[in-house]
């Protein structure tokens, strides 16, 4: 899916007519764990552990574009500069979110002033400082957030999601 470049108003309904567009910005190293051949199906999807960035790449209140769990699922890492519930890193202030609106799949844009994600399709907005809580809107779920792990080198890995992503009936395709 496309991400929002938030420069031009592309006319609400005309977003994302083509699927499967490559993400730009982040260097994405995808490492899918190998599956044993004859194992029975698992109860939950097996999330990849994907390196998305290093803490040094992040600047406070500037979204860093990534994709997870694959290139068709755009998102961002965000260093908030203040500790939040669910925040990762030494300061507990790094969060990661899908940036596709869970209502109708429109790309969200970030408002750095009040730190919100906004949907140009139907006016929904989400708060990255409150676990992606939908402040107001049409989606029936809050914004999918990444489970993050940060290693001793400061590399940031995503290892899971807490809600179903728009446009897929399995978070890992």
């Amino acid at each position: 899916m496309k991400r929002c470049r938030h420069m031009v108003d592309v006319g609400r309904r005309q977003f994302l007519r083509g699927a499967g567009l490559a993400t730009a910005g982040a260097a994405v190293a995808t490492a899918l764990p190998s599956q044993p051949q004859a194992a029975p199906s698992l109860a939950r999807v097996d999330y990849p552990s994907t390196r998305l960035a290093n803490v040094k790449d992040l600047k406070v209140n500037e979204p860093f574009e990534v994709a997870y769990p694959d290139a068709d699922a755009p998102g961002v890492l965000l260093k908030l500069g203040k500790r939040v519930e669910g925040g990762a890193g030494p300061d507990g202030d790094i969060v990661g979110f899908s940036t596709i609106c869970p209502h109708k799949g429109f790309p969200l844009h970030y408002n750095a002033e009040d730190r919100t994600f906004n949907c140009p399709g139907h006016y929904s907005r989400f708060d990255p400082e409150a676990g992606g809580l939908q402040i107001w809107g049409q989606a029936t779920q809050n914004l999918p957030q990444y489970t993050l792990r940060i290693d001793s080198k400061g590399d940031i890995y995503a290892e899971g999601l807490d809600e179903l992503l728009y446009g897929r009936l399995s978070n890992v395709l």
Partner: peptide, 18 residues
């Protein structure tokens, strides 16, 4: 083909609340 990411406003998706 549900092995692929669906487009915005797709008919071929439903949320957990549905």
């Amino acid at each position: 083909d549900l092995s692929k990411q669906q487009e915005s406003e797709t008919e071929a998706w439903y949320s957990p609340s549905m």
